[in-house]
Design a protein around this nucleic acid. Structure first.
Lengths: 366, 366
DNA sequence: TGTTCTTACGTCAACGTTGACGTAAGAAGA
DNA sequence: TCTTCTTACGTCAACGTTGACGTAAGAACA
């Protein structure tokens, strides 16, 4: 009765739309159908214990009232309270690598009825902390993290509380949890060695922000390949902490202006590769200077010359991350698993340009 | 007391990790701090009415117990119950257009404390329905929809219940709500007219799935431009329902094999553009046949020849969508707004290739 | 010194739902 | 025909939190 009065009031307020018209609840449905709230609950959840007649009456009432199940209340009450949300904290969902990962993750989690709450960290540790806190407060069922922070002790308490964590692209530090990464050292070694095999002696490397472990590993791979070939590292050719496309273009231009410029480049990340290509283009050198980029991207084969890259199988990575998470949600208890995938060298042309005066094989590959 | 016993039980179960260790609640914190639950609530929410001493005691207790606020319970109880979630139902979060949109949306909603739950629809109407139902059950504060379905009457009840809806890229049908679209007819007209101005008489068009209104509009623009130039439409040059990259490549190859092949192409979507470029490449015709693609993408300027495109300002679109949504959440009551942005032609080279025997200006633009 | 105000708490109920358990009526079995 | 079982409900309390309201103690004022 009181309820009815309130509804009337709501209808009366013609102008004031500020507060939403209230959603109807099981109570309203129960009243209209002439049954108890619990019976409505049974019908809505498809439980046994409701006659066909009652079931239909309830469903009709629910439809009349535009009743929608309230998952929040349901989750709160249920024993095994699953929110059905998985947080995906990535570097930048607008970037092809993160976007591809997100998509693969979404696909692998969908069948389990999980939704993905995606967020971009932009390499800002504080944002990571804030979003994790939010997701914990939401009681997310799991977290996928491509961390911006260097240390992850702060997650230990969440893990202890039973929150499944899966790191991707970067390993956890001060925390032991599942992770899926690629062998960055190997990838960068391959990239660099490939160029050295092409006769290059002065190979430059552009790398991402120094704080990122992935970037450090790729630098290590670069160093290792030089060392293996007996080449000395020229510090002026190793540029860490390159910030993005424009910065990469500037750095490449600067390197090309050196008295003894590099004849080949390794770029540590997709955006840096793109910036480098632009710089080589505007210098008119894209067919003279070799380039191997880390990370493949959708149109890398259409660039001229087509880009030789170190490819990480984003599809696969996302699927593995999803599988690890689902296993944990299924109660898998073992020690954390650390999947390390092998990146592959995709020869397309830009990396097969040989050093001047040192022909090897034809560079054309397109 | 009883509670303590239960906690002990939880600790005792050494092996069975299946059920998560329970999170501590305000009740636990209150007990440890020797205050009432309400006081804990006040401290946690930063409300007035707690002495410095009590506040500190509560915070210490909360930390000791790894207490985390339960947003679900909070939302349930609060008057103006906001979940803080906005659903973003896009075509494919792995595609650069959707991904860019998602990112821009995320940025504009972040400051309002809203999180984005992203989902890919893959042009499947049923998935759309399912995800919308899920988000409604979650009591999302708003929905951003790039719909896969053609009719949207099913959303009327949600809108009536106060759920802010913003359509993006495609207009609502059978429902009146805010939307942000681009003038697809204009865009396609410009693309086609630009090619005609380059002397082309046989301009082919590849378009997306016919059910998609956006695709229909782009076809309409193509038709309009032909008509305006007094050119008759050759039905064999208009190919609708092209499914993706590979399909686009096949279609282009087939068209090039015609007795009187097209000398220029308009592609109705980024993936089709990419497929077309591949086909032109492998036919060795990328410098002979002109191409204007709908949708810009990150490396379109690096393709050879650089791609002339109709660009939609994804950043802007996402920001406008966010703004409309936030306005509604702030209580804006007016009639639905329909923002129609003007796409722009970005000349980069591929669209400036002139028809054989009909020179106009130099095609080089890089 | 008595009155009023303010501050710092506490108590209670409610948000919308579901688990545990109770019960009446009819079916099945002895 | 009486007992036991089953089915189809209903009642009650609880999930974790907060709004409404109550109250005791001290501050401020006349």
């Amino acid at each position: 009765m009181r309820n009815t009065a309130i509804v009337t009031t709501t209808l009366t307020q013609a102008g004031g739309d500020r507060d939403r018209p209230a959603r109807s609840t099981m109570k309203d449905v129960a009243q209209l159908a002439g049954v108890s709230v619990k019976t409505v609950s049974r019908v809505v959840n498809g439980e046994a214990g409701a006659s066909v007649e009652v079931r239909e009456r309830v469903l009709r009432a629910a439809e009349r009232l535009d009743y929608r199940h309230n998952l929040g209340a349901s989750t709160l009450r249920r024993k095994d309270s699953r929110s059905g949300i998985v947080g995906a904290l990535l570097q930048d969902v607008g970037n092809s690598f993160s976007a591809g990962l997100l998509r693969a993750l979404e696909d692998s989690l969908r069948e389990a009825g999980l939704s993905v709450l995606a967020a971009s960290l932009d390499e800002e540790p504080e944002r990571e902390r804030g979003i994790v806190a939010d997701l914990v407060a939401r009681r997310a069922d799991g977290l996928v993290l491509m961390p911006a922070s260097r240390r992850h002790e702060y997650l230990v308490s969440e893990q202890r509380a039973g929150l499944p964590l899966v790191f991707v692209d970067r390993r956890p530090h001060g925390l032991d949890c599942d992770s899926v990464t690629v062998d960055n050292v190997l990838g960068a070694t391959r990239a660099t060695a490939h160029l050295i095999e092409g006769g290059h002696r002065r190979v430059a490397m552009l790398s991402d922000l120094e704080e990122i472990e992935t970037a450090q590993e790729r630098i290590a791979g670069y160093r290792a390949a030089l060392a293996a070939a007996g080449l000395e590292l020229d510090p002026s050719l190793l540029v860490p902490s390159v910030r993005g496309e424009e910065d990469a273009s500037r750095v490449v231009a600067k390197l090309l202006a050196l008295p003894d410029p590099p004849t080949a480049f390794v770029t540590g990340r997709n955006t840096l590769t793109i910036g480098a290509v632009r710089a080589l283009r505007s210098a008119g050198l894209s067919h003279q200077i070799a380039l191997v980029g880390f990370d493949d991207f959708p149109t890398a084969d259409l660039v001229e010359p087509a880009l030789t890259v170190i490819r990480q199988d984003v599809q696969r990575i996302g699927a593995e991350v999803g599988r690890l998470l689902l296993d944990r949600l299924d109660g898998a208890a073992g020690p954390p698993k650390h999947l390390v995938l092998e990146p592959s060298l995709v020869r397309r042309g830009s990396g097969e340009i040989t050093a001047p005066g040192r022909p090897r094989t034809a560079a054309r590959s397109d």
